[in-house]
Design a protein around this nucleic acid. Structure first.
Lengths: 336, 336
DNA sequence: TCTCAGCGAGAAAGCGGTTTCTCAGCAAAG
DNA sequence: CTTTGCTGAGAAACCGCTTTCTCGCTGAGA
């Protein structure tokens, strides 16, 4: 917009090349065959004038932008960052750009933000983990084409890309079970978070599947501090027989481990700890944190693939959930 | 673009309300006084039809689109994430959106990416820590209005917002000096990084200012792994009398500490360690990592303030550098 | 009562491209 | 040699909105 080369328009190029605007446009888009001499002249004029086509004008006539928007509740969340990065690179490869709309955790603003963003862009990637399902349904219908990230939406006419949290939790429980643990605690995430609900479902499934296992749910959170502060409750549970903890995510697990070390609780000797997300730091914690790995960048790329199909008028592709991969490290060990 | 309400245009609203397009436009923009009856009719028509103005058309006529772009080498870097978040929120408050252009560390593409981005947006925020100064100078001139982040650019006609790394390093050295350290090592960052050069300048300044101090420079990097792998060199330096290490950033410091613990080196007993950036994890490391805190979100907000001035036709405001704040924690201690 | 501002609404001209439509020119077919 | 069918370039319409221009109308001043 409004670059320094103000007033260098296609008309100027046409005039300088001594041809019509239409011809210039044809040369630019290369859709039709054009007299080589004209092509020459036009290209010469373009470089001489330093002409670049106006994106806005093009958008107006085409009715599209080559821009998509990603609506996220909090850009600070490593998960969204990773997805954004993967999305942004994949989209760039197809000539699309990504707009970021951070809703600052204001669930009430998400709807307006998404609508506004949709209005400037050709499509939306929506991360709204806490929006009530019904509202989300309505919103999704209004802003299509859209891809929903990381939350289930039963029966919705929308592609979904996410993580199979329930499955991940089950796999982690199995891992712990294999190590002999029978009394486990789940340090839960934010109450309204859809992915926390999924994890809880995994917890329930695991308990149902393995009659010998008990899993207590302890209120936690999603950040380092939350884990740190939950250490007291966790330690209390440990005293009552819990031998392993599954944290909502790695940040919580890391915060928890920090505090436990201060309290003199040995990991994994006194207590095994498992996280979720496999953030880079997990490998560098002491002890190295066992975690369920999630392919953030890959999710972003997959989101773009689905969105591209949608933009091209293709069908709503099936939901895809990535199964987290267990990265067994030192923070989980055999029960004493 | 191309929303479901295809064909609902200002003309439809005008027709339905029985007035001219111009009147609808006036009602929409509220710049001129309009007959209340017309306002009524227009608003009724708008809601009845579910009309929303076309952003593209507006952009075309105004020559701007209320969007800015941030060009970053790597979205995974916590520094850029924080800045992006701050920028995005500040800009949103003024009705601007932010486009992300991740150049995937390809210095060669940065120029093209920036130009392309500039072409779709009203202004650019440029993070190009490794682009040669001269090229950057030329680029900056071409894509104005632009704000450069986190690197010096002597004599350039462009606002710069960044961190006073040199000063930060000096402050950290002073801190160590106060603890009795005289032989210090600087575990350096990526060779071509402008901010690493700044830090090295700080190192040189410190040595010049404090005759009693020696600072060895050890090659490192910018990520957790780099710190982990540099531990051997650091330990060797320690054996030769180095009592404190300043890491390029916190990630490097954390990686280093992890490995040192494995090697049986006590921190801060055997060796003091200081980081840079004050990432959230710093407070949760064992021992808690002493770091130089950088106001990431604040930088983003400040960048927006400068850019807004520029967009409004204001002057190129002065460079502003944030002085990092020492967060003295447990990883630095008195020399033995 | 007549003239002149002033106000406000409609008509129309862009903004900078793309795309349809029209028509000249030329080669092949009759 | 004339007619037909293409090819390709230019003219003009159009995308949807803003803004200038024009003009009718009203109210104040003479």
């Amino acid at each position: 917009m409004s670059e320094r080369n103000r007033a260098v328009t296609i008309a100027d190029v046409a005039a300088r090349a001594g041809v019509s605007q239409a011809s210039v446009s044809r040369v630019l888009n290369g859709k039709q065959s054009v007299d080589p001499a004209i092509v020459q002249a036009v290209q010469a004029a373009i470089t001489a004038l330093g002409y670049t086509p106006s994106v806005a004008a093009r958008s107006l006539v085409h009715g599209r932008n080559d821009t998509i928007a990603m609506v996220v509740p909090d850009l600070e969340n490593p998960l969204f960052q990773g997805i954004l990065k993967g999305l942004s690179r994949a989209a760039a490869a197809d000539g699309y750009r990504v707009l970021v709309a951070d809703t600052a955790e204001q669930v009430d603003e998400e709807e307006a933000t998404a609508l506004e963003a949709r209005h400037r862009c050709d499509a939306i990637v929506l991360c709204a983990p806490r929006m009530p399902e019904e509202r989300l349904q309505r919103l999704v219908a209004r802003i299509a084409p859209v891809v929903v990230v990381n939350r289930p939406l039963p029966g919705a006419q929308v592609p979904i890309v996410g993580v199979d949290y329930a499955r991940g939790i089950r796999d982690l429980v199995d891992h712990l079970h294999g190590l002999g643990h029978r009394r486990i605690a789940y340090l839960s995430g934010p109450e309204l978070s859809a992915s926390n609900a999924e994890r809880l479902r995994g917890v329930a499934d695991a308990v149902a599947a393995e009659p010998g296992i008990t899993i207590d749910v302890i209120p936690g959170g999603s950040r380092l501090d939350d884990g740190y502060e939950a250490a007291a409750s966790v330690d209390a549970a440990r005293r009552e027989g819990v031998t392993a903890v599954i944290a909502f995510n790695d940040l919580v697990a890391l915060g928890l481990m920090t505090r436990l070390r201060e309290l003199g609780v040995e990991v994994p000797g006194d207590l095994s700890i498992g996280g979720f997300d496999d953030v880079p730091m997990a490998r560098f914690a002491t002890p190295r944190l066992t975690s369920m790995s999630v392919p953030r960048g890959e999710i972003g790329a997959q989101v773009w693939a689905r969105l591209r199909t949608l933009i091209a008028g293709g069908p709503i592709e099936h939901t895809v959930l990535y199964r987290p991969r267990l990265e067994a490290r030192e923070s989980t060990g055999p029960v004493r």
